[in-house]
Amino acid sequence: MNLIRVTRAERFFGISFIVALSLFWIFPVIVTIKNSLQVDGLNNYVYIFTHKIAGLSIFRSFFNSLIVAVGDTTIILVVGTLAAFAFSKMVFIGRQKIYSIILMCLAIPAIVAVIPFFFILKKLHLYNTLGAVIIAEVAMTVPFAVLMMRNFFDNIPDELMESALIDGATKFQTFRRIYLPLSVPALINLGVLCIMWSFQDYLFPTMFLTNGSLTTATMAVNSFQGAFSFNPIDQGRFYASLVVLGMPAFIIFLFAQRYIANGITSGALKD
């Protein structure tokens, strides 16, 4: 059912507006695809899949991104959910204070963290490993996970906890056997968001990975640009690589659009 009832003229106006505006979205897509086919057609795509670019195969860069995304998401889900459960369902000294401080961390600009993280990661011998990017992304994203999962647990009644405790279950058993299974939908939402953010991250991989074989897909956008010259064939190949590097976002969108919408809006600080 339509939310707003409109006259035919208004409807026509609305649709025209959308169609006209969409041309600005279609323009860059057409340009990119058209340029990716210049000179050599689909062979440009064959080329980028069969050749190393800047000393790196495109599969390797996807693989690196995948490792970072999976590592980052797993840690965030575990750490964030455990903490959120405590903040939501348990009474302890300093609960509200610690929670507020963790929420404040949402505001830390990533660029500010670069220098201290650089130093810490060197000390931990993680610099120039995918682990460095994983742990840096975890540190910046876990506050959101805590916020989102706490909002979720707050909406599950406390009575479940009380009855389980009366039945003799420990806190951890209650978490593991009752709350965790109930929170699977929220965990999926959160997981999809973390994967997406990890794929988008540019700053941390650029700063913490100097070894070319560790290049992630997002870094590759930039390193490939340097690897191709300005002749039309190379430019065609570069555009083709951009199309391919954008594919994960499309795939995530196709399969997980719903989860992203749910995740973002449930984590929002609504009043």
């Binding site: 575990v78 750490v79 964030g80 455990l82 903490a83 459960f85 405590a86 903040f87 348990m90 009474v91 302890f92 000294i93 609960r95 610690i98 963790i102 961390c105 830390i108 500010v112 963290a113 220098i115 201290p116 993280f117 130093f119 810490i120 742990i135 840096a136 975890v138 540190a139 876990v142 805590v146 420990t170 806190k171 951890f172 978490f175």
Partner: peptide, 27 residues
């Protein structure tokens, strides 16, 4: 209950201590 709760938030607090608190001190 306090001890159990702190066990739940311990992983978060350790990441926080190493990466946020120490970063602040370092900066």
């Amino acid at each position: 209950e306090n001890v159990t709760a702190y066990l739940f938030i311990a992983p978060l607090l350790s990441i926080f201590a190493v990466f946020i608190l120490y970063s602040l001190y370092f900066l």
